[in-house]
Computed example of a mutant assay.
Amino acid sequence: MVGKEFGRIYAWDEVNPAMVRQWCEVMGVTNPLYIDPEYALQTEFEGLVAPPAMLQSWCQSGLYQDNFPPGSTDDNPYGVLKLLEEQGYMSVVAVNSELTFERYLKMGERLYYTTRFDSLSDQKQTALGTGFFVTLKMTYFSQKPYGDEQVGELLFRVFKFKPAQVIETKTESKPAIPVIKRSKPGISDDTRFFWDGCDEKELRIQHCKSCDKLQHPPAPVCIHCQSFDLDYKVASGKGELYSYVVMHYPEIPPFDYPNPIGLIELEEGVRLTAGLVGVDPKNLSIGTPVEVCFETFDGDLTLPMFRTREES
């Protein structure tokens, strides 16, 4: 298989300012050549260009693995790694990633890359274990009507290996890892009524005596009329799912994953954020009727959670 060429993997999108801006924000890059159209227009490029180090990101599959645009090859350039796994070389570590660039990319260009299985080393013995260095080379092209143009290359090398056998040694017993508990809320004079209500299985919403309006989260002053004359009313606990997210990663103890979290619009008109329980995240939708339920964690922390309900 060494020397085998694999077909094209196309980019989902053309080189565009929005993705360049987002990439620069994440990476902390402030070069005006990438993000300031007026500045870039005065340069030799006569417009915005993409950061060279962004080259690899244009042709990545996105959120779902191997989800490439129509026309991309189905031939897996990483198939050699599967063959090594079948021989017992199950572990992998990346050891080299080297990008080279021919020129800047301009807005509107469409890219693809091809892959070459460049080399497979002899069997090596390392501190990690015994295995092989696998080297692939991805060559990136810009599609042109007069002939596609090479714009860069990525050398990617991994080590596929059988882990070195770990010799078990007796060690002194270590103290048990403490169980991670849910963080408790910061409670002030302005919010105490809400958390006391949770202990009483009541969903208490702050109420202004002056203008008779509700507000959440609690505050020291009415956000509607700036009155300090505040108390609370007990909500029905019924509402609907105004919005939601499902947390998958990073997994942070002590929460279970996937972890659905909802923005609930109560019948009384205010919204609050709370965990969703007893639901299949795949079946969630905006407008789903929900109702409050109270769950106690770690023996002393009672929180309002929401579950789906049947509409009456």
Rank of each mutant, 00 (worst) to 15 (best):
E310S: 08
S121R: 07
I9F: 15
F6K: 08
P258D: 06
D300Y: 01
L111Q: 04
L111G: 02
A53Q: 08
M1K: 08
M90L: 12
A176T: 02
T130P: 10
D122K: 14
R204T: 01
V279D: 11
R182L: 12
Y89D: 05
K238V: 12
V20F: 06
Q143C: 10
V246S: 07
F133N: 01
Q87E: 15
L128A: 15
S57F: 15
T30N: 13
P70H: 06
S236L: 06
Y10N: 08
N31P: 04
L128R: 10
Y10W: 15
V179A: 15
G28Y: 05
T114Y: 01
Q150P: 12
L154T: 03
D300V: 00
G131E: 05
D74G: 07
A11R: 00
G71D: 03
C222E: 07
I205N: 08
G299I: 03
L99N: 08
I9P: 00
L263S: 09
K209F: 10
P217V: 04
N96W: 04
K209C: 09
E38D: 15
Q87K: 14
V221G: 03
G197E: 02
V92F: 03
L154H: 14
N16Q: 13
E102I: 01
I286D: 05
V92S: 08
P304H: 01
V270H: 09
P163K: 06
D256Q: 11
T126A: 12
K160E: 05
K201G: 02
T139P: 01
P37A: 06
C293A: 13
S312P: 15
L155Q: 09
N259T: 02
K181W: 10
A50W: 01
